[in-house]
Design a protein around this nucleic acid. Structure first.
Lengths: 254, 254
DNA sequence: CCATGAAACGACCACCGTTCTATAGTGGAA
DNA sequence: TTCCACTATAGAACGGTGGTCGTTTCATGG
């Protein structure tokens, strides 16, 4: 937060009015600051007004309501995600890069995933992001339907994964340590289950709990993109390549 | 599973007129009834206590806090999802069936997806579901890591998709009509964007808005499963175990 | 028949988002 | 320069929320 404590009263009347007018931008910026520092639950209209040194009722002249404020915060933050310009032949890796960038943004702003999870990004930056995402996917040769849905699926995946990661070490405490503790506890619990009743959980206790967030993310990314490629290549109508269908997945249409 | 899907919460408390003691089961049942009838936001401790004809403070003798109550409600509802026993060669279709069943459960209980999205299902029914899901995935020959993460990915996908669908027609109003209205509005908006700046959005306005929830779901399912197959087939894998243990089929009692 | 201990309750606490209304402060017109 | 209209502001109030605490109720065991 910018500190403006040393007030120069001699310059007051002319240049900078000590009364910094309440602005939507200022409100949204400050809201993002509180979000980063204290989390979503702390981001109340009252707390926000206090930060802006005003009354909480004044905010409603600029933002409508809290939900709309969160819309604005979300859209503001979407500025930070980098979407590469398509390069032929590299689209899959570029999609991954975009998803990684989106994930970085999610992890950089506390509780942002909680805000995003039930929100359709229709703000200006969200729309722009969608446009560029679709551009990337279509450059990969995906059918229209697959490109349209693929963008949704990928962003949902990134959001959900970020939500999971951030909710794991949910408290205000250190992240890594707490996540490790939780994984260890869970591992012990799974191992302690009756093996006759839960053979798979006991057997997979290791893989289930040892996957750190980064590995989970890369794995999921790989799965979804491979699925997009396979679906785009093998699906009905205008198949451009002979089916990639692997054994056991003789999918009987719909 | 006992058929009590149309939960009549209003009659429940009257079952035993003289004095029905407050019980965790009764609380959770009633909570589920309120959830179905009025949604998550209406499910406050006070509203719940009122339904049970008691004071809200009394609930805390049985459930700890609201979040724990939601854990219990979630786990209770998990009873309803059907997970098939593995049949050789049909695993992919069976995984789909399981996901569809899970989705049906989500859509049958208002706002359940909102409860599930940031919750790890570690209750007894959740654990059981994980076990049987892993059983199914491993029967498909997936590597341990892929099976372990695939279960997570699939359940996250189902939850997120249900959340999206239920949040689209969010209000208390009719579902289909409102969803259609929204799609039409969005379609018009996308079509009205400047084509030079948003060529892909304009071009894909149709596919983006015409995908109904069922199609979205089936498409996503297909993508993820194809991705799992592709990732499992393409990666170097030596750990393919011949033995497939099925819990419950040969259980020697407990 | 009474004592006891757990269950239930009512009063509180510290908040929340939102609306209403009175006012303070400003830009522009006279 | 004066004054007016207008709007941004903020205080009070409303109807909620989850959670805690000290007290009361009451069925049951002695």
């Amino acid at each position: 937060m910018p500190e403006e404590i040393p007030v120069p009263p001699w310059r007051r009347p002319k240049k900078a009015p000590p009364r910094m007018p309440l602005t939507q931008d200022r409100i949204v910026d400050t809201a993002l600051g509180i979000l980063d520092a204290e989390g979503l639950d702390a981001l109340s209209m009252r707390r926000l007004a206090q930060e802006l040194k005003t009354g909480h009722a004044s905010l409603y002249a600029h933002v409508g309501n809290r939900d709309e404020l969160l819309d604005l915060v979300f859209d503001l933050v979407l500025t930070e995600v980098e979407i590469p310009q398509p390069e032929p032949g590299r689209w899959a890796e570029q999609v991954k890069e975009m998803c990684r960038s989106l994930r970085r943004v999610f992890l950089a702003h506390r509780d942002l995933a909680r805000i995003a999870i039930d929100r359709v990004p229709l703000g200006p930056n969200g729309i722009l992001g969608m446009e560029r995402t679709l551009n990337l996917l279509r450059s990969g040769g995906l059918r229209d339907e697959l490109a349209a849905y693929g963008g949704d699926l990928l962003s949902t995946f990134v959001t959900a994964e970020a939500l999971e990661q951030s909710s794991r070490h949910s408290g205000t405490e250190q992240s890594e340590e707490q996540a490790g503790m939780f994984a260890d506890q869970l591992h012990g619990y799974l191992k302690s289950l009756p093996p006759t009743q839960f053979p798979n959980l006991v057997h997979l206790a290791g893989p289930i709990t040892s996957l750190d967030s980064d590995r989970r993310f890369e794995l999921g990314l790989e799965i979804i993109i491979a699925g997009l490629v396979a679906a785009g290549a093998g699906d009905d109508a205008d198949d451009r390549e002979p089916g990639i269908r692997t054994a056991g997945s003789t999918l009987p249409g719909s």
